[in-house]
Design a protein around this nucleic acid. Structure first.
Length: 199
DNA sequence: AGCACGATTAACT
DNA sequence: GTTAATCGTGCTC
């Protein structure tokens, strides 16, 4: 995906990422998944966005140019993968919450064992585990040609006609309104893939 | 230096 | 439905 794809209003980017492919190359092995769920976090005003704390060592990448990975650590054990959006200087990103793995399933199965396929990548920390994404990717340029982590549009003929829904973002327990309820979570159901129509 | 908490997950009652 | 796991981050003293 070209960098300008990410240089837009973040909720629009999150919506348009549904159905795109997240690709990971490791040891010559290609793994990829169809993005099924994503959330927008936008600006210092958004009380759910990490940038509400301002520009800190942690949030710095979000202030950088679009198309780069913002990977953060939480709950003492989990990594989360975001894609930086909008113009440089404006902090915003899209959190990838679920994908359906179509390539490299053997590798992912090994890494996510003993979970069943529908549980491999149906959560933001799970997909990082499955595709081996951690802090080494913080700041990584996802638009770099030949990069080992990147986004691709589905090839002609392989496009799915996904119906994209929206809802409030997940896990914002202590976030004040209106940020807690704004419908910046986007998702689509794919037959056979993990269910993402959670409440 | 100390502290409360988190854009979660898996296991358990 | 409830809870332990586990530590970086940002804030207060």
């Amino acid at each position: 995906m070209p960098r300008q794809f990410f240089d837009r209003f973040t909720p629009d980017v999150a919506r348009d990422l549904i159905g795109m492919h997240l690709v990971r190359m490791e040891d010559g092995q290609r793994m990829s998944g169809i993005i099924l769920e994503a959330e927008a976090y936008r600006g210092e005003e958004d009380q759910a966005c990490h940038a509400s704390a301002g520009c800190t060592p942690r949030t710095q990448v979000m202030y950088g140019p679009p198309g780069h990975a913002y990977v953060y650590f939480t709950y003492g054990m989990h990594w989360m993968l975001n894609i930086v959006t909008e113009a440089e200087g404006f902090p915003a990103a899209v959190l990838l919450r679920a994908v359906w793995v179509t390539e490299g399933r053997e590798v992912v199965a090994r890494r996510r064992a003993p979970q069943p396929p529908e549980r491999w990548t149906d959560g933001p920390a799970k997909l990082c585990q499955a595709l081996h994404v951690d802090k080494a990717f913080n700041g990584y340029d996802l638009c770099a040609p030949g990069g080992v982590l990147r986004l691709e549009a589905p090839p002609q003929g392989a496009r799915l006609d996904l119906r994209v829904n929206s809802s409030p973002r997940v896990g914002l327990n202590a976030t004040p309104e209106p940020w807690k309820s704004i419908a910046w979570r986007y998702y689509a159901q794919l037959p056979g893939a993990p269910r993402v129509d959670r409440s």
